[in-house]
Design a protein around this nucleic acid. Structure first.
Length: 652
DNA sequence: TGAGTAGTTGCAGGA
DNA sequence: CTCCTGCAACTACTC
């Protein structure tokens, strides 16, 4: 029996600590170990990945490569620039590989990819070894213990979890075998088709990462943003296992914070520092193991005697259980989990801007949607641009775009506003924007949380509980420090008006340097001349929130009464229209409609553009300055005194 | 079984 | 600061 020659295939497990799959590779006692990353065109062109998430991925790859080299100077992360489905068989042959080892991934695309690789390995006589390390539980086992059903509530996860164990973390290896000869001569590269490129809008230059299989210098180097044709990242949040472990250690040093953490009590307006751990991007890329996080928190809880520790679901460990819940839901439902139509657990609600489905696959891979309602299209564009005219919403959207992370409750506020609490736009439109901009984008968690907030699935049923774009932010940050930081146009506004600047008298607006005018087309940082003065411009609210709230609640009420789900025949074939009357918001033109995904109408593109997209609001040589007024504390403060009925509520 | 209760994260007003 | 109520009223879970 010859000694094993092993490819360890890194994917979303960019770490050396607590990697059961890496351990399994080492347990083979291989003659040589090739740590490989396949630069997958699916991620480069077909997933929505903004520049900040690319930066985070590259950080993680460089860090894990450095860590490998530290243990064995002859080794590193070998980035091979081709699809795994085509390049791995060539590597097996060339490098005389006997085994391929990787971490299990239950994402819908990953399952398809890995199944293809397994089949190719079988044909090539290469043994495949897979271990789960991405979540607390193996999602398939969690589903099995949940009666084979998708995990749709935290109670189900907790009950199913009782029959399973969360493995203790395993230490990082202290030695790694040499890789073998990594010669690629004779291998025919197969560069991918770049079209469609869902990330084309981000690129200044064409992507060149596929020009050579082992990179421009033939060194298997991690590609750069420059090679991707992308401008520099704007996020301050950085990736890498070392960064993650340092951040985790710093958090756990504060035992009271760790043991008494209650998510709903953390402020979405805190930004320096933020009120939560910001470890989610590391969980996504695997630069931190969820199990390592879980057990290190759990051990602190066990020893904590000062006061009552928090418990799931609000505690830190509870946050990890929610992650497993979404993974379990996706593991059971597959591709339909991240879409509305054909998703059996997603309540059907006739949102505006529905996805255009690919007729052959019934999946929304077209990247397009139907503009059934022109105003909704404008609302969606303004929401994405951070120009809704509601400062709290705009601050969050600008923070999301520039930094790649916003607090969970901030995500709720903007998601509610786009869907059931304002614009009545399909949650998939919002999920696509989050996919593009979030560092921690995780298909399962993103699709799941959007369905939750939109009241389409999970615990989301109390649709009459609507986040106010004015009151919610003010509850946490009465001074508006957060809004002033991310919407600097309003930096000088009085605290009474910073969440609703359109109410400020014109004389005050002028005194504070910003006029509330128009619909945002001038963009953030636009200016207007009036008389002697020149002022910044911030848009008026794009709709009356009180009115929209009423319309949305009525729409949800009729959708709940109809009781339809995404996989119902009438939803898939379009005959659902007959079940709604015009009282509900939505495309309700009667029973004549085409199937929803193929509805007629002008088509929109997900890469919306709005002139206000330039978010950097520095102007005329003043340079960057901290826009938060000096001396303002940014703790949680409450104001109940100045609520002069923020937006009128109309009863139609 | 069916009634009662709880549900990580609403708002406004009040004690 | 916490807790309560009315608003209108959904679903899952428990016993």
């Amino acid at each position: 029996m010859p000694s094993p020659r092993v490819i360890y295939w890194f994917r979303t497990d960019l770490r050396l600590h607590d990697s059961p799959a890496l351990q399994a590779a080492l347990d083979l006692e291989p003659e040589c170990l090739f740590p490989v990353w396949c630069w997958d065109p699916h991620y480069v062109y077909r997933a929505r990945v903004g520049v900040n998430r690319w930066q985070f991925l590259i950080d993680c790859q460089n860090d894990v490569s450095k860590s490998i080299t530290k243990i064995n100077p002859n080794s590193k992360l070998f980035v091979v620039r081709e699809a795994p489905q085509t390049v791995l068989p060539k590597l097996w042959k060339k490098w005389r590989i006997t085994h391929i080892v990787f971490e299990k991934d239950t994402d819908a695309y990953a399952r398809d990819r890995d199944e293809a690789v397994r089949e190719l390995a079988r044909k090539a006589g290469v043994e495949v070894i897979v271990r789960m390390g991405r979540t607390l539980y193996d999602p398939d086992e969690l589903v099995r213990e949940n009666g084979g059903k998708p995990t749709m509530s935290i109670t189900q996860v907790q009950n199913a979890g009782k029959k399973l164990t969360i493995p203790r973390p395993i230490p990082a290896p202290t030695s790694l075998p040499d890789p073998g000869d990594t010669d690629l001569s004779g291998i025919e590269p197969e560069p991918p088709a770049a079209n469609p490129d869902l990330n084309a809008a981000h690129r200044n230059n064409p992507d060149t990462t596929y020009h050579a299989l082992a990179g421009p210098a033939g060194t298997f180097a991690v590609p750069t943003l420059d090679e991707l044709g992308l401008p520099p990242a704007t996020t301050p949040h950085r990736g890498g296992e070392q960064t993650a472990l340092t951040a985790l250690a710093a958090i756990l040093t504060d035992k009271t914070y760790t043991a008494t953490f209650e998510k709903p009590k953390t402020a979405p307006t805190a930004f320096s520092p933020q009120s939560t751990t910001l470890l989610s991007p590391h969980l996504h890329f695997g630069s931190l193991s969820a199990r390592e996080f879980y057990w290190r928190v759990q051990d602190i809880l066990s020893a904590f005697k000062h006061s009552k520790p928090s418990r799931p679901p609000t505690s830190l460990t509870g946050q990890l259980l929610f992650r497993d819940m979404y993974f379990g839901a996706q593991a059971a439902l597959g591709h339909p989990f991240s879409q509305s139509i054909s998703n059996p657990s997603c309540r059907f609600i006739p949102w505006h801007l529905p996805s255009t489905l690919d007729p052959t696959t019934a999946r929304p891979t077209t990247g397009r949607y139907t503009i059934d309602h022109p105003a909704a299209e404008t609302w969606f564009k303004r929401w994405k641009a951070g120009l809704t005219g509601y400062p709290f919403i705009d601050a969050l959207m600008r923070q999301l775009r520039t930094e790649g992370w916003i607090h969970h409750l901030g995500r709720h506020a903007v998601a509610c506003f786009l869907t059931r609490g304002g614009a009545y736009v399909a949650w998939e439109r919002g999920a696509e924007v989050f996919e593009e901009w979030l560092l921690d984008h995780e298909t399962a968690c993103n699709a799941g949380n959007w369905q939750w907030v939109a009241c389409a699935a999970f615990s989301g049923a109390q649709y009459y509980r609507v986040y106010s774009p004015v009151a919610f932010g003010r509850k946490w940050d009465a001074e508006g420090v957060f809004v002033r930081r991310y919407v600097p146009e309003l930096a000088r506004f009085d605290r009474r008006f910073v969440y609703e600047p359109w109410r400020a008298p014109v004389a005050d607006q002028k005194r504070w340097g910003c006029r509330v005018l128009g619909d945002g087309r001038g963009g953030a940082g636009g200016r207007v001349k009036e008389g002697e003065g020149e002022y910044l411009v911030y848009p008026k609210p794009m709709f009356d929130f009180g009115e929209r709230r009423e319309v949305c609640v009525r729409g949800l009420k009729s959708a709940f009464a109809a009781g339809l789900y995404g996989a119902d025949e009438s939803v898939v074939d379009g005959s659902w229209r007959g079940r709604f009357d015009d009282a509900g918001e939505g495309p309700t033109e009667g029973s004549e409609g085409l199937p929803l995904g193929m509805a007629e109408g002008e088509e929109g593109d997900v890469d919306v553009d709005w002139e206000g997209m330039s978010l950097v609001v520095h102007d005329g040589g003043e340079g960057e300055e901290d826009v938060a007024p000096k001396g303002v504390k940014h703790q949680r403060e409450k104001s109940q005194s100045s609520l002069d009925s923020h937006v009128k509520r109309s009863k139609k």
